[in-house]
Amino acid sequence: MAKVSMTVNGKTVTREVEGRTLLSTFLREDLGLTGTHIGCDTSQCGACTVHVDGQQVKGCTVFALDVDGADIRTIEGMANKDGSLSVIQQAFQDHHGLQCGFCTPGMVMAAASLLAVNPKPTEAEIRHHLEGNLCRCTGYHNIVKAVMAASGQDVGSIAAE
């Protein structure tokens, strides 16, 4: 066991972990932040996407000890300060960008990462950016619409379901 410290959603946390403890396991089991979902645990699905120092990563493919000292943001840190949904989260609700919701935390984190560097992405850029996030319910159209809407753009041009 070794000591690890990081800032998670603005709060500094310190725990003892094993070398093999993954960031996703650390968030869920040590911190109780179960919003970060583990879909495949093989780096394919992106449900465990979180931000490490502003960069999106798959939480299941990073060791907790390797991000010692980092600034971590998870889905629990995405809502507005008053508890209302953030623009991206609200857009997912408004445009029915989820059905079962399992992939949604990862989708929201990936979308936030895209909009941080590209505030007005095209539909193609959104689809390209979401390549590492799998959704088995929606067929992606409404997710793309939600990201488009969250960027303040018209969603009329996106193909109907």
């Binding site: 992106g46 490490v52 999106q56 990563v57 798959k58 990936a110 990462s113 590492g132």
Partner: peptide, 9 residues
Amino acid sequence: IGDPAVRSR
């Protein structure tokens, strides 16, 4: 390469 999360790490 890969996807954005893979490219971050």
